[in-house]
Design a protein around this nucleic acid. Structure first.
Length: 635
RNA sequence: GCUGCUAUGGCUCAGCAGGUAGAGCACGUCCUUGGUAAGGACGAGGUCACCGGUUCAAAUCCGGUUAGCAGCUCCA
């Protein structure tokens, strides 16, 4: 019979030939590198028997799928090892993740990281024995019988929940058999580099109400070198951790006295204010007006907006003169009240109303994390009130503005479209209309996005922008939410061309999302090496001897005159020492001034990240610095 | 909130097996005025997160509380 290879070549093989055998017929090198195969586009085990006319593709560890198969087998080796070391435990599930794998296991007595040595030793033994991995399939009742025999209650539950027509397959390696869809490596000996890294709790089936199992995380790579490179990269990434840099650079403080409420220190305030100034300038140009609404408003208002019903557990409440009040978790109801203060004409729309709003949300204690997740933060919020025919253009405008701002910092981002959640308000028609409006804007702008089913706000669907932190976790920053509900609830209206009253449509949007979170991401993105326009300390002037400290003061004054954040380090320390300190502070420009410079009216410029130093007149340096700040050049 | 781990001078960390604390950096004083990533000497600074228990004796062992970290769940 004949099979077709990836490159289109045809190969004659005997009936009953496996993928592995076919691979070795193509080339010995490829056969040895093979870890799985793709038959007619479907990923399968190497032992899969080919049929006449099948299209065969060999998968190696160089392929993404190949590495996944490899990591998947690692998780099974982990399971086998754990079963050997702790025979009474019950296995749940063990999938592949970025860089590795995990397995959720129900232990009779809790284990700790100290047990990793035992487990890893057992895994190494399994790998060394190079046990063949065999697939077999069973009908449902036999599958349940088998897993019941092994006392694997979680597996029985999984089998019971599989759809009627699904194939129930098992993989057997030695005495160990596990329910699995596969595919797997042909034998355990192919695993070259793995390590167990951490242990954590995880709810069975991701449900908070179900039992918490123990999850063992591991990483696995095709070679030991790749694994080493991974650990080195993780070490580097940890050095970028915003909590650590925030402390080192005295940007902010997290204190026991205010759990989830960060303190901003002078350096951090420079960052925050600079971002706000940039934001405000940009929004003025984009036709926004700015308001500020109160932090505490009556409970009545929150009931009216629907927040009370959907969100009261996360709101801080208080009583003022006997009246129930709540601290705002969002700015919109305040914005609605402002809209209602006066009648609006269709000629006024779109109305773009921005607010740097300080909101408070009672996040559960375990969710708090540095500046990424806090209980009090500043939203760069805006509400856009508009006519139905303005929806697409307004959304596009916000997407463009978001892109512009993210690009300014050199961020790459991911876009998600979140649709109607279960717990939501409003009619299906409104939701469809709103969702397709968002989708239309994204499609027309040729923006790639993922759909996040059921993850919208309770009042409307949304477009979310996600940025990545230094160890690859993503955080939602920007958001554009289309809302038909608030205008209705607050009975907003405008007078149309026809002289009749109509309901405006509203967008909620934020670009930084939370200034605090955005600052956290900025810190990690730049590893604390902020571009000149953002740097808390922009220029440091270092006199070589006490003789030149007067000239240093003069240079500093000239820079301050131009609004540049400059300071002199006049301590009687050696120049090398002062340079080292300034560099560790990540100051963009360090100016060294000695007798020569004082005499010539120049400065010796040390630019961060640049080995060569150069001499410039004071005026020349001021000019370049002013220009770099004004143009917000990143370096 | 749940599971696990952690908590020692301003910072980064030692303190292995219980006998009332150490280092480096930072800080202060003095000497050194030195041309591009750490000059030298001396000094000050900690009831070892908090509360309780075991013990003749607890930073060290046990329990609880608080806070942080990793993950889970949640995030209008």
């Amino acid at each position: 019979m004949e099979i077709i290879l990836k490159n289109g070549d045809k190969l004659n093989v005997e009936v009953g030939t496996t993928c592995a055998k076919a691979a070795s017929a193509i080339s010995d090198g490829l056969a040895r590198a093979a870890v799985a195969a793709k038959v007619n586009g479907k990923l399968v085990d190497l032992c899969t028997v080919l049929n006449d006319g099948d299209k065969l593709e060999i998968v190696t560890l160089k392929d993404k799928e190949g590495l996944e198969v490899y990591r998947h087998t690692c998780s099974h080796v982990l399971a086998q090892a754990v079963k050997t070391v702790f025979p009474t435990c019950n296995l749940a599930i063990g999938p592949v993740i970025d860089n590795g794998f995990y397995y959720d296991i129900d232990f009779k007595t809790p284990i700790t990281q100290d047990d990793f040595v035992k487990i890893e030793t057992e895994m190494a033994k399994i790998i060394k024995s190079n046990i063949a991995i065999k697939r077999f399939e069973l009908p449902r009742d036999e599958a349940i019988q088998l897993m019941t025999k092994y006392n694997e209650k979680y597996k029985v539950e999984l089998i019971n929940d599989l759809p009627e027509d699904s194939v129930i397959s098992f993989y057997k390696q030695g005495s160990f058999t596990d329910l699995c869809r596969g595919p797997h490596l042909p034998s355990t000996g192919k695993i070259k580099a793995f390590k167990l890294v951490s242990i954590a709790g995880a709810y069975w089936r991701g449900d908070e109400k179900k039992k918490m199992l123990t999850r063992i995380y591991g990483v696995a790579f095709a070679t030991k070198d790749e694994m080493k490179a991974y650990f080195e990269m993780m070490e580097e990434a940890k050095k970028r951790d915003h909590i650590r840099i925030g402390k080192e650079m005295k940007l902010f403080a997290l204190l026991n006295e205010g759990k989830g409420f960060p303190f901003f220190l002078p350096n951090g305030m420079v960052l925050k204010n600079t971002l706000v100034d940039y934001w405000r300038d940009l929004h003025k140009r984009e036709g926004y007006v700015e308001i500020q609404t109160p932090i505490i408003l009556t409970r009545n208002l929150w009931e009216n907006s629907g927040h009370w019903e959907h969100y009261k557990d996360n709101m801080y409440t208080t009583k003022i003169d006997g009246e129930d009040c709540a601290v705002k978790p969002m700015n919109c109801p305040g914005g609605m009240l402002v809209y209602k203060l006066e009648p609006h004409s269709y000629k006024d729309l779109p109305l773009r109303v921005a607010e740097m709003g300080l909101v408070h949300r009672h996040e559960k204690s375990g969710q708090l994390h540095g500046l990424f997740r806090v209980r009090c933060f500043t939203q760069d919020d805006a509400h856009i009130f508009m006519l139905p025919e303005q929806i697409t253009d307004e959304i596009k405008g916000v997407v463009r503005l978001t892109d512009k701002i993210y690009k300014q910092f050199g961020f790459k981002y991911k876009v998600e479209l979140s649709t109607r959640p279960e717990d939501s308000m409003g009619s299906a028609e409104d939701w469809d209309l709103a969702t397709s409006a968002l989708q239309k804007a994204l499609d027309e702008m040729n923006i790639e996005y993922e759909i996040n089913e059921g993850d919208g706000a309770f009042y409307g669907p949304k477009i979310d922008f996600h940025l990545q932190d230094s160890i690859g976790r993503t955080w939602q920053c920007g958001t554009i939410q289309l809302d038909f509900q608030m205008p209705q609830r607050f009975d907003l209206e405008y007078v149309g061309e026809d002289g009749k009253k109509h309901r405006p449509i509203m967008i909620h949007r934020a670009i930084f999302g939370s200034i605090e979170r955005f600052i956290g991401i900025l810190i990690e993105h730049f590893a604390g090496k902020f571009p000149l326009w953002l740097a808390p300390k922009q220029v440091k002037i270092l006199p070589i001897t006490d003789r030149t400290s007067e000239y240093a003061d003069k240079v500093c004054a000239a820079l301050k005159e131009q609004g540049i954040r400059a300071e002199v380090d006049a301590r009687s320390e050696k120049i090398g020492y002062k340079i080292r300190e300034a560099k560790m502070e990540k100051v963009p420009y360090v100016l060294v001034v000695g007798d020569k410079e004082a005499e010539e009216g120049t400065v010796n410029v040390n630019k961060r990240g640049v080995e060569e130093k150069y001499s410039a007149t004071l005026d020349e340096f001021v000019e370049t610095a002013v220009k770099e700040i004004a143009q917000k050049i990143n370096f």
